[in-house]
Design a protein around this nucleic acid. Structure first.
Lengths: 239, 239
DNA sequence: CAGGGAATGTTAATAGTGTCAACATCGGGC
DNA sequence: GCCCGATGTTGACACTATTAACATTCCCTG
């Protein structure tokens, strides 16, 4: 109790001592209410996730960082699982952005069949780039999560997919469709191709992060990934 | 303390009450020492892992099942991480056996190039069969594990690979080498092919277990997997 | 422009976990 | 025969999640 977490009052006072800009809603005001606790907790939990992965997303630790009592989080999350889920969705969003960025870097350029092929590769590169740049977040983005489980259990037909995970999947779908449109892939091969492609990059990322490939240099990883993309696309373009 | 875990004495007495055959070393003897506690703990932890995955491998729960005090485990394991690692190796062994079984079911038959190709498929089927039959164990077999991390960090050159994970990998390597020997795969494609194949099945398993494919029927899963194998092998056999 | 209810935060307490230190008991080798 | 090491137990500490009860503040209604 003596060296307990900083109370809200202590936090609010710390805000005014010039240590940094006020993060509360109104400038410098020592507020009992935080004002944006939900987001603050997600940010703190994300930082925890960055180094340490899913098991580092600890509710009390996040609350401690924000300078709030542990149970305050329960006013904004049903429990630790929901906090973890929020971080997970944030991670999926970042992953999607990484893929989009890699795809956009060559969009419009080379509009032909080779361009479509190169776009698939670019998406894979963007995926792996994020996994390497943010291993902790990546691990959270794909960690087992009871909220997603429940969601999939209950709703058999997910009409509107809010989650960013499906958006990144959609990007891949479009890229593969383009492959078909440009005659680089037959309709038959197209069936289930998203899964094959996704499985490939996901499996590669896993092996890079905590598998047998975890001590390869960046160049070696790139080389291995490109070879994998080669055979993947070779399989796609085979009638 | 009242409803504490069963003491060793209680366990030993339970052994003699006809509930089952004596698991201790000598028949019926109420022994203070367990006699085979390490294995018993691994078995208990494996049962926990079967339903619940890595996060269910709880040291105290395993000790409770064996009927032993929580700290007794520390005479046989450095800590929970080492217990988890033991279960992980057991899981990898089972996975290897599943792959070997699937491969052996058609070994020697059809020795030609088609047989080599079919063997690669069989290994993939054996892999996925295990993942579906033992999802919890599978998840443990590939969970992040600080022991493996340390091992990879320290020893840069792993001369002798004790782990079963490398054995299953070796099976795949042989199958791919056979593909080359029978002229179904060029040397160029061979480079890094293990990783591509491994990534594919691992990614598929992940999506089946806790990904977007978790509610497919067995038939649908098989169909998706076979299509993935098709394009994978198409990629391998492309010059 | 009150005042009261809802939102938000705090303390206290329970239950479960990993881990260490100190103590108890068995069993095999001198 | 006995003693020392291997093995198991108790007790304790530091974490964690979570709930219940209490406190404060915001803001909306009368």
């Amino acid at each position: 109790m003596a060296d307990m977490e900083a109370t809200a009052r202590a936090r609010a006072e710390a805000m005014t001592d010039g240590s940094g800009p006020d993060k509360g809603k109104r400038g410098g005001k020592r507020t009992y209410h935080h004002g944006d606790l939900r987001n603050a907790l997600i940010v703190a939990a994300t930082d925890l996730a960055r180094d340490g992965g899913p098991e580092a997303v600890v509710l009390r630790a996040a609350a401690r960082r924000v300078g709030v009592s542990p149970t305050a989080a329960y006013r904004h999350f049903a429990g630790q699982a929901e906090l973890l889920h929020a971080v997970k969705e944030l991670g999926q969003q970042r992953l999607t952005e990484s893929m989009e960025a890699a795809g956009a870097s060559l969009s419009a350029r080379e509009p032909g069949p080779d361009g479509a092929e190169e776009r698939v590769r670019a998406l894979g590169r963007g995926y792996l780039a994020f996994a390497r740049a943010e291993p902790g977040l990546y691990r959270v983005a794909f960690c087992r999560d009871e909220f997603s489980m429940e969601k999939l259990d209950g709703v058999i037909d997910p009409g509107e997919e809010d989650s960013w995970g499906f958006r990144s999947f959609g990007i891949l779908v479009q890229a593969l469709d383009a492959l078909v449109e440009h005659g680089r892939m037959t309709e038959r091969r197209r069936a289930g191709a998203e899964l094959t492609a996704w499985a490939t990059v996901h499996g590669l990322a896993t092996m890079f992060l905590d598998g047998p490939l975890s001590q390869l240099t960046s160049e070696e990883i790139d080389a291995v990934a490109e070879r994998a993309f080669d055979t993947l696309i070779a399989g796609f373009t085979t009638p």
